[in-house]
Nucleic acid binder design. Structure first.
Length: 575
RNA sequence: GCCCCGGUAGCUCAGCUGGAUAGAGCAACGGACUUCUAAUCCGUAGGUCACAGGUUCGAAUCCUGUCCGGGGCACCA
């Protein structure tokens, strides 16, 4: 068993082994492990195997449980074992073992989380906005959820490559180029690049609808760009550069970093080859002038890999991208984070990739669309809320709160704090929901600062820091590690049990690609801590108890800080 | 028409790889700041888990059907 194995792992291994040999069910598929109970009156862990084994053994569940208990020699970390209800076997951990475990986790930089990703590379493809279009609130989910998955994987030891697969290629660049030459306002471009590029695009698009010669001009410029015309190429590169610069200001504010910014264009050279191998393998056929892959056997509609005008599209680019990534990085897995509308596309392209023999573990993590209360959020409706505006608003609102709650704080510090709180609030709102549920955007929800929110967690953390500092000020000579954690009070026990579940939360969140599992965990932890804080004295407790409680505070702080960091949320020392 | 997702407290959402009386937050009501930061805590109230069948010792969770909402389904990505 590994060094910082959880109680759940240890206990499950024990129940499984013991039951297998005792009942002679070595080959059973019945799960024999334990799971945390949902209520501490049932102990800490429960094993449900007796009910499941009932049929196999042809005995009553309670009898099975009883026989097991009578015969079993309990592991030393278990204080109590008993039977309840129809045949649940409940385990209660000993307080001493619990305390020792929490203490031992202080020596593990990963707080007990097993490094399952060591030596493995995973590529995470997320955010991926389109060049020359401003990021709006619809982009926040891919960015924030993708980044949390990125951080979770890194924490588990994976070599993560975060790749921002920009939309930097497509027919719109013809319109962009002609439009730019006629309409651009360089001063405005310097001021707000993407906004100006977007304005240029819209102007050009509108003109193309009325003026066929304009449309032809755009087409001609697109062809020139695709053929590598130097001037058009330079212009296009400028669009990309300006866009990335502006995206980066948003990413900086969000604390998001990418390892690569490889747009779709990066893979252009490979497209003909992909088509060629599709044809060679007999996967692609002509249909109405286009080249398609028939996926009827897989129960899916056909997938176009080359348009009738000879152009390539999304599926082809994505196949080429996989091929390139496999060659260069040999990833164990590639994770794509996009909204739900792309499910079919990914299913199709994953299937084709497999048929092509691209041996990759491809995972599509999708999330529900962001809506506005009154309507579906869409550029066509013009009801967009720019991402930058959302962040501004969040910072402004939290700054107001910081000013009223900490009027004596230096202005600069107030601003930094407001940033950490405001951005944290926005991220947490998104991350604390099941990614797959459809979310309705409201300012009230996005900027929630009370109850189940990032500021609640940050506040809990800041209070611990404050207690910890006061302790050291009052007892400067105390070496905390010379005192053991003593678990006596009910709330201390609940806190310790929760702390021991951190590893499970990390793994659950990472494996399921659901950061909300981590968010839920942290909120529970903070709630228990807040109750602990409010209901028992620390600094005024007697010696021994005092140090024990401060140690529990310290462990809680470390766990909250690490957990929030995995969500990309900052933990200021003071709020 | 076919496919994917959702429907849980007044509102916003957890819980969904089956387990014990279904949980939070907000809103409502009642308490706690001369005491470690009240962005907090303690308590009260609030639910035929859309509906109907089925599987199971056990179903919010799995299966089937229906209703309602969102999305997708050939040259956008």
């Amino acid at each position: 068993m590994r060094e910082f194995a959880t109680f759940e792992e240890r206990l499950s291994a024990w129940t499984t082994d013991t039951m297998k040999s005792f009942f002679g069910v070595e080959d059973t598929n019945v799960p024999l492990g334990v799971a945390p109970t949902n209520n501490d009156k049932f102990g800490d862990y429960q094993c449900n195997a007796a009910m499941e084994l009932s049929k196999v053994l042809k005995k009553a569940p309670r009898q099975i449980a009883q026989e097991f208990i009578d015969a079993a020699e309990l592991p030393n970390f278990v204080e109590k074992i008993d039977i309840a209800g129809p045949g649940f076997i409940n385990f209660t951990l000993s307080n001493i073992a619990l305390a020792e475990h929490i203490q031992s986790l202080e020596n593990d930089p990963h707080l007990g989380a097993e490094q399952v990703g060591r030596g493995k590379t995973v590529i995470i493809d997320y955010s991926s906005p389109n060049v020359a279009k401003p990021m709006h609130i619809g982009h926040i989910r891919s960015t924030v959820i993708g980044n949390a998955i990125d951080r979770l994987y890194r924490f588990l030891g994976y070599n993560v490559i975060a790749d921002n697969h920009l939309g930097d290629w497509g027919t719109q660049f013809g319109l962009m180029i002609v439009g730019f030459r006629s309409f651009v306002d360089e001063a405005a471009l310097a001021e707000a690049p993407i906004e100006e590029l977007e304005r240029v695009y819209v102007a050009s698009y509108n003109k193309s609808k009325e003026d066929p010669t304009w449309r032809d001009k755009a087409k001609a410029e697109l062809v020139k760009l695709q053929q590598g015309d130097a001037e058009n190429r330079a212009l296009w590169e400028r669009f990309i550069k300006l866009s990335i610069e502006e995206f980066n200001t948003i990413y900086d504010r969000l604390g998001v970093k990418f390892d690569l910014y490889r747009g779709e264009s990066f893979y252009n050279d490979r497209l003909p080859k992909i088509i060629q191998s599709l044809e060679e393998k007999g996967l692609a056929t002509e249909s109405d002038g286009a080249l398609i892959v028939d996926l009827e056997d897989e129960g899916m509609p056909v997938c176009i890999v080359r348009k009738s005008d000879g152009g390539y599209n999304y599926a082809t680019t994505d196949l080429a991208t996989v091929e390139a990534r496999l060659e260069e990085f040999s990833p164990e897995r590639i994770v794509y984070v996009t909204d739900e509308r792309q499910q079919l596309h990914f299913k199709q392209f994953f299937t084709i990739a497999e048929k092509l023999g691209l041996n990759a573990n491809l995972v599509h993590v999708w999330f529900g669309l962001m809506r506005l209360p009154e309507a579906t959020f869409s550029t066509r409706e013009g009801n967009v809320i720019k991402l930058a505006a959302l962040l501004d608003e969040a910072e402004a609102r939290s700054l107001e709160m910081v000013r009223s709650s900490s009027p004596d704080m230096p202005a600069e510090q107030q601003k930094d704090l407001a940033k950490a709180i405001g951005i944290g609030a926005i991220k947490y709102t998104d991350l604390s929901q099941n990614p797959q549920s459809l979310v309705t955007f409201t300012w009230e929800k996005a900027l929630n600062m009370e109850g189940n929110s990032a500021p609640y967690l940050q506040y809990a953390y800041a209070r611990i820091s404050s207690v910890y500092d006061k302790f050291h000020a009052q007892y400067p000579d105390t070496e905390l590690n010379q005192y053991s954690i003593i678990i006596e009070h009910k709330i201390e026990r609940r806190l310790a049990v929760k702390l021991s579940h951190f590893s499970a939360a990390v793994h659950g969140a990472a494996e399921n690609h659901r950061p909300n599992i981590m968010a839920d965990y942290l909120y529970d932890l903070a709630q228990i801590y807040s109750s602990f804080y409010q209901n028992v004295p620390f600094l005024k407790a007697e010696q021994g108890v005092r140090e024990s409680r401060i140690r529990l505070c310290r462990s809680t702080a470390a766990t909250l800080k690490q957990g929030l960091d995995l969500l990309g949320i900052e933990t200021p020392e003071r709020i």
